[in-house]
């Protein structure tokens, strides 16, 4: 084998707007086999993008294909898709096993009972399979939904915030399972607003901010690109002039201004550097920091990720 694997999912200039609100704006990328993380803050457009990728929502412009075929209104193609939406509602009156069986039946699974056994074993819920799902914990419901997503052994898995509600043990189990499925040659797209989740799983990352593809590629490259992105930070302290003079000495800082109200506004290209250096500078100068906040709304969430990371 040589070169880049053929894209399984191709998103080409896709936009989606709802009235005057643009949810997804001119997004282009390919998804190849393996695990791809769709990362972005809440409201960034990830779910809308995933819904279009599964044919559940129409594009306003652009084209979207899966295995070279349009995915919208193409039911035969859905046999190859396993989709787990972010919505956790289940048919509470059904037992977990009945739910997985029904999903298998709808997807035309042969040897249904064996497939149901296999899917439930994969998510380690055999003990609870005969209980109604309205008695399940949130994490159990998620796992049983995953079993239903896997019952027809799909080539592509599209998972929207799949780790919501999972406890640490379940997360580890889930991550192990996804790696195993990816190693078997499946294409997995999972979305998250938590950097660490994607970092631990995805080989490729698509960063969505405000409906736009802000960055894509390997995780390290994305992280480096984010770190070098210029942004404004507002710093409140008890000695602004003294701290501003110290901040100017940082190599990653492009500009420092002091507002009339005494707040320092820093323009930086490296949030991690600023995050580390700012408290150190303040401490060495004997200055008390009162508040540090990003000013650029569109980058606020990105800033948040990086601070968390």
């Amino acid at each position: 084998m040589s070169g880049t694997p053929a894209p399984v999912i191709r998103v080409d200039g896709v936009s989606r707007w709802f009235g005057s609100v643009v949810a997804v704006s001119d997004v282009t990328f390919d998804v190849a086999p393996g695990i791809t993380g769709l990362l972005g803050p809440n409201g960034a457009g990830k779910t809308t993008l995933l819904r279009m990728m599964t044919g559940q929502a129409a594009t306003s412009s652009g084209t979207l294909t899966v295995f070279g075929q349009p995915v919208r209104d193409n039911p035969p193609l859905y046999r190859r898709l396993g989709v787990m939406s972010e919505h956790e509602t289940v048919y509470g009156f059904m037992t977990g096993r009945d739910f997985v069986r029904m999903m298998g039946r709808l997807r035309g699974v042969p040897a249904l009972e064996d497939a149901v056994d296999r899917a439930i074993d994969l998510v380690d819920l055999a003990d609870a399979q005969h209980r109604p799902m309205d008695t399940y914990s949130r994490g159990m419901r998620q796992r049983m939904r995953l079993a239903a997503t896997l019952v027809h052994d799909p080539d592509i898995l599209i998972l929207d915030e799949p780790l919501n509600g999972a406890d640490p043990r379940q997360r580890v189990h889930f991550q192990h399972l996804l790696r195993q499925l990816a190693a078997d040659g499946r294409t997995i797209v999972l979305s998250s607003h938590i950097l660490e989740e994607v970092e631990q799983l995805a080989e490729t990352v698509l960063l969505i901010v405000n409906g736009k593809l802000a960055a894509s590629g390997g995780f390290r490259a994305i992280r480096a690109a984010l770190n070098q992105r210029p942004y404004h930070v507002r710093v409140m302290c008890d000695s602004p002039r003294k701290l501003a003079a110290a901040i100017v000495s940082l190599g990653s800082v492009d500009a420092v201004n002091i507002d009339p109200d005494g707040a320092i506004v820093v323009l930086s290209r490296n949030v991690l550097d600023l995050q580390i250096e700012l408290p150190r500078l303040a401490q060495s100068a004997g200055i008390s920091l009162r508040r540090v906040e990003p000013l650029d709304d569109s980058l606020e969430s990105v800033f948040g990720y990086l601070v968390e990371g």
């Binding site: 039911p75 035969p76 859905y78 989709v83 709808l106 035309g108």
Partner: peptide
């Protein structure tokens, strides 16, 4: 309303 309809619409069956 419950957003369970995708369980059906994502099935490879005619509408």
């Amino acid at each position: 309303e419950d957003r369970t309809i995708a369980n059906l619409t994502l099935s490879p069956i005619p509408r």
